[in-house]
């Protein structure tokens, strides 16, 4: 049943959370430094840590509470991540669906090549290229940062942030479109070859109807499970983007934490990344159970 499935999912999410916390705890504990409860046993320390985390006490970084610091930076990261994820999913799925449907055309082959090329290039290369072309030569966007100097007098404005965030968003989107596109195209190719598509055509349904009613819904199923992976991929890629664009988000914070060997902060960052991905996974599961009837009802003979 549906409720049972959900309880299972919640249980797994919590489990994954504790395991992640455990691993970060174990790894970072290998590094000699002082932290609360050092005099107690390892297990006790782990539980103290968990207890503190749940209480919202994520430790201190140079006297500042880690959670507060992360929270503030997360906001900036999301300004880039949310549009980049939405845009790359939207574009990747549309382009992938289109060329999966029109497979084998000349255009399909060229797009596939371009996408594979794009995918092979690391995100920082795109970042540097885009800065060179759009900021340096064309002067369309700022070189980096998150607001203009004039904002010091006039106060921070949305349009100014948008202006500064555009290039990082574009870079991250370009970097992650190929993955989505490729999966969607593949999923389309598999679905189009299914027997039930032939049954649909044998009814005399138009190609358009077959596409929208029969192919797309099935082809989207694997995409839903893949969205959390895409998020993880983007969060990782975003570190480079933020460093190069000096964007004050989690990515830049990660870089600073590593440079300063600030392990409490690093631990907090790993934790927040894990949480984001767990939440993404859980939402995907929820959504999946809505669109795939085989999960919604359960039981029955498969």
């Amino acid at each position: 049943m549906r409720a049972e499935y959900l309880i299972k999912r919640v249980f797994y999410s919590v489990l994954v959370f504790f395991i992640t916390v455990g691993i970060t705890f174990a790894v970072l504990r290998q590094i000699p430094r002082s932290y609360p409860g050092l005099d107690k046993s390892v297990i006790a320390q782990y539980f103290v840590y968990i207890y503190n985390v749940l209480q919202g006490d994520w430790g201190y970084s140079q006297g500042v509470p880690v959670l507060g610091l992360i929270w503030e930076k997360l906001y900036w990261s999301l300004i880039i991540l949310v549009p980049a994820i939405s845009l790359s999913l939207l574009i990747g799925i549309l382009v992938g669906a289109h060329f999966g449907w029109k497979r084998g055309s000349k255009m399909d082959a060229s797009v596939l090549n371009v996408m594979m090329f794009t995918r092979a290039i690391p995100p920082y290369w795109w970042a540097i290229m885009f800065i060179l072309i759009f900021s340096f030569h064309l002067d369309l966007f700022p070189l980096g940062g998150y607001m203009s100097i004039s904002a010091l007098d006039r106060g921070i404005s949305y349009s100014d942030i948008l202006y500064h965030s555009a290039l990082p968003i574009i870079t991250l989107t370009v970097y992650s479109i190929p993955g989505t596109y490729y999966l969607m195209r593949n999923s389309m190719l598999l679905t189009v070859g299914e027997d039930y598509i032939l049954t649909a055509r044998a009814k005399g349904l138009s190609e358009k109807y077959v596409l929208f009613k029969h192919v797309l819904k099935n082809a989207m199923l694997p995409m839903v499970t893949m969205i959390p992976l895409e998020c993880a991929y983007l969060i990782a890629g975003n570190i480079f983007i933020e460093i190069i664009f000096s964007w004050p988000g989690i990515g830049l914070l990660t870089f600073d934490a590593i440079a300063a060997k600030d392990f409490s902060l690093l631990q907090g960052i790993v934790l927040i990344d894990a949480l984001l991905i767990i939440i993404a996974n859980f939402s995907a599961d929820l959504f999946y159970s809505h669109i795939d009837p085989r999960i919604k009802v359960g039981g029955g003979n498969v």
């Binding site: 055509r201 005399g204 795939d292």
Partner: peptide, 20 residues
Amino acid sequence: RGKEIAMILQNPTTALNPVL
């Protein structure tokens, strides 16, 4: 198709759309 000539496909486990 479907009106004058109809076809009943070979394999019933794969010939029905699982999400409809």
